[in-house]
Design a protein around this nucleic acid. Sequence first.
DNA 1: TTCTTTACTGCAACGTGGTTGCAAAATTAA
DNA 2: TTAATTTTGCAACCACGTTGCAGTAAAGAA
Lengths: 126, 126
Amino acid sequence: MGVIRKTKSVQTILNIFNERKKAVSVVQLIELLKDEMNKTTIYRILERLESDGVVHSFLDKDGLKLYATCTSGCSSTHHADMHPHFQCQDCGKIDCLTVEMTIPEIPNRTINFSQILLIGKCEECI
Amino acid sequence: MGVIRKTKSVQTILNIFNERKKAVSVVQLIELLKDEMNKTTIYRILERLESDGVVHSFLDKDGLKLYATCTSGCSSTHHADMHPHFQCQDCGKIDCLTVEMTIPEIPNRTINFSQILLIGKCEECI
DNA sequence: TTCTTTACTGCAACGTGGTTGCAAAATTAA
DNA sequence: TTAATTTTGCAACCACGTTGCAGTAAAGAA
């Protein structure tokens, strides 16, 4: 499973993640690469990259899927992607945050993941 | 704006919220009420109830829209829906949590809302 | 280099959640 | 009861995402 072959398409997508450090939505990628590859290919490459621990995915405030490179602690077996994300309500831009947020204990429940999205205004939109 | 007329459809939906205390997905409601009203009507009633401060909406782990009754502090002008939600990864059930989670300060950004979803196993699925 | 295996890609079609425009029905106030 | 206005149903549409399958390309073996 995962990325086995370093195809041109995979390289192209990896380059995009390396250039921009921000999270990228699948929709953006499809638009950006519409002359280079099929949207199905994009979805499948991202899937493989994620299951390989290279990127992680999450949903933005509108439920759209985003991907960002994993900074540390992620592998194909475990994703340390509990970190919160920030989305600007005006320009839509999204960042991974490095702040730690303490997850509360809930009686009679176990908590395994969390999706935390903080929504507000970014530096440029304030 | 908001709910002006207490139609049969509105009453039906309000009753459902009163009976079940849990959050309900729009998809569930559409299935539940498929013989009584059109899905467009459901979407529009929920929209009105939300803008009236009667219910609040949020997205689950798959990006599906859920609604739950507002317990306190919500109005048509302001939604105090900063509380986190819990979703069971097995049965999919969702609860509003009453725990307070402190939202961190982020330099050069303002934070106005937050969507916090804690994912794990519920009482029955542990 | 060429061959062979197997992963990857493109295409077209499909599925689902959600939205829109408009005419008909229902509600409220007069 | 009437008139004004909000709601509703319908049908069509849109966007994001998925699937099956045939053709293409990568990687190792010969």
